[in-house]
Design a binder for these strands. Structure first.
Lengths: 222, 222
DNA sequence: TAATATTTCAAACAATTGTTTGAAACAAAT
DNA sequence: ATTTGTTTCAAACAATTGTTTGAAATATTA
């Protein structure tokens, strides 16, 4: 078996094809036969170069994690001179781009998004190395907007509300296209979606830190 | 092969067990062998009573759709005397309960939630018979809160923001438990989650119909 | 009760999965 | 050029999938 470092032609072809197919189909639905056929290599190549299918998946994750991290760093475009509100806007755009964009760097985002709902044995690694740092940054931004006195639990709930919105447009695409065949909520609408989610969420975070819905009602009547 | 109507002991046992297993594992990961073993029936029973695995899945969907519709009607607890804000609160609670509750009636919600991210050939049926009516009701409530002058596109985006939040707590449970091992965002927190999502969303809908995030910022500084 | 229809069962079937094999082809080093 | 190590390949392997079979058991009907 080959080492991790060596970059043979076959190895690259497999990583390339497997990245796309895993992102499209998920771990269990993607078959080694399909990957090898599309990569134009022999069936035995995966086991020779990566040990087994798990080894391939892990290599693919590591490979594209690196690329994705360079293309869309978690703090992409965020600097300390920005207001928390601007940071949130930047974060949401970066998040949406990462999971909806096209081409190689987005495959990792796609893989990660899939692990959210169809977790495999690799989820622990992903949470540790990618999801936790990214979510940590979000909770800091949200915490700054809500203010220091806000309970940690509330900060987390609000952060989840934001992530939930972002993931929905990616995950539920099959449903959305059936609900509204004419309309489109995809890659080309990232700007629109970013502005909508940011606006919706900033208002959601606005002043009503611990208020329940009935108090908000009063607020509206004002 | 048996008819749909007849309710043999074996048939019931299969529907019962298959409902649970399909909800837990999804269509493709659930195996007929596993279902039959846990139901205590012979391997051939599924093909005998339902034709094939697809036929079983369809029967399970139809069966629990009926039960779920009775237990959690889409307009559960909603009446025309309520304010739209109250209606939204009721809707969100009903939605969360449907997908997070325990026991038979919730299996259908679980199956439906799964189809959102792992669509099977059955998605078209589900969109037509369940998802579209439910989403239609939500957009009406959201439309009433936003006001008649609001663009349909905005109503839809806001409705999706609400559904996205609800589904997140269900879908991403594996990630959430890894992020916060001590905390819990599940069945027992339905009340808390309902209040949070309703509050967050009502504020999100509040007055800022077409405002982008920078205008919200100004609003906050007031 | 006897005849008929229905349901259950163990066994096998065909297709697909990930994986292994051992020889052949290729490359690198002596 | 010969040896040595590495990579590729067609073929087969073992395990799992959904499905079918045909006889046995059970229930229903005459």
């Amino acid at each position: 078996m080959n080492d991790k470092k060596t970059a043979s032609k076959t190895r690259n072809a497999i990583i390339e094809t497997a990245g796309r197919i895993f992102a499209e189909e998920g771990y269990s639905k993607a078959t080694v036969r399909d990957i090898c056929r599309q990569a134009g290599v022999n069936i035995a190549a995966i086991n020779y170069h990566f040990g087994d299918k798990k080894g391939l998946y892990l290599s693919v994750l590591k490979h594209y994690q690196e690329i994705s991290l360079k293309t869309y760093p978690p703090d992409l475009g965020i600097n300390e001179t920005q207001q928390p509100e601007e940071k949130l806007h930047t974060y949401i755009r970066s998040f949406l781009t990462r999971i909806m964009d096209d081409g190689h760097p987005a495959w990792f985002g796609r893989l990660m998004a899939r692990e959210f709902t169809q977790p495999s044995w690799a989820l622990d690694i992903l949470v540790k190395e990618t999801i936790r740092p990214s979510f940590q940054l979000l909770t800091e931004i949200v915490g700054a907007i809500l203010g220091k006195s806000t309970k940690e639990r509330v900060v987390r709930l609000c952060s989840m509300s934001i992530v939930g919105q972002c993931l929905y447009f990616m995950h539920s695409h099959p449903v959305i296209t059936r609900l509204y065949p004419g309309e489109s909520f995809g890659r080309k609408q990232i700007d629109e979606l970013t502005d909508h989610i940011t606006g919706f969420s900033l208002r959601g975070l606005l002043e009503g830190k611990n208020k329940n819905y009935s108090e908000v009602k009063k607020c509206k009547k004002r």
